[in-house]
């Protein structure tokens, strides 16, 4: 537990002082235990999401950074993207099996910005309605199949 809080404190400081472009931490969202954060994100200019605002929720377990954070889009605007379900769940391999403690909140944000930026057509995943109906509340409890790395 101690190592998790120490690490999160550092991450918080780092994202406050050098936030990636278009990303900012929502200060009010961070409680004293640091186990839940909300990050505000803007669609990058020159992409399909230019001018849009999104919110990402991060939840950390006591095993962080060995256990990946649980990351979902929340709020009124969930990006329409082939890897983002309408309930905010994101299909991205670094959030489950390819997670490594060398990654961080910052690198997850960068991966998500880049996933959005490389999108060429705004649409939901083909199995969106079935998934949203049957899935667990926690996206880490989905056995994701990662089939492509194009978008």
């Amino acid at each position: 537990m101690a190592s998790m809080q120490k690490r999160l404190q550092r991450e918080l400081k780092s994202i406050q002082t050098e936030p990636p472009p278009g990303v900012s931490i929502n200060q009010n969202s961070v409680g004293s235990s640091l186990t839940q954060w909300i990050v505000d994100m803007e669609g990058a200019s020159g992409t399909l999401y230019e001018g849009e605002k999104f919110q990402l929720q991060f939840k950390f377990s006591s095993k962080y950074p060995f256990d990946s954070p649980e990351v979902t889009f929340i709020g009124p605007n969930i990006p329409i993207h082939p890897h983002v379900y309408s309930n905010g769940h994101i299909c991205l391999s670094i959030l489950t099996e390819d997670w490594s403690p060398a990654l961080s909140v910052q690198s997850v944000c960068l991966s998500i910005v880049s996933m959005l930026s490389s999108c060429t057509e705004k649409k939901r995943p083909p199995d969106n309605s079935l998934y949203v109906k049957t899935c667990s509340k926690n996206p880490k409890k989905t056995k994701w199949w990662y089939h492509d790395e194009k978008v």
Partner: peptide
């Protein structure tokens, strides 16, 4: 194509 594996069950 990609998605959660339980999508397979639909067929």
């Amino acid at each position: 194509m990609e998605g959660p594996s339980n999508a397979e069950s639909s067929s």
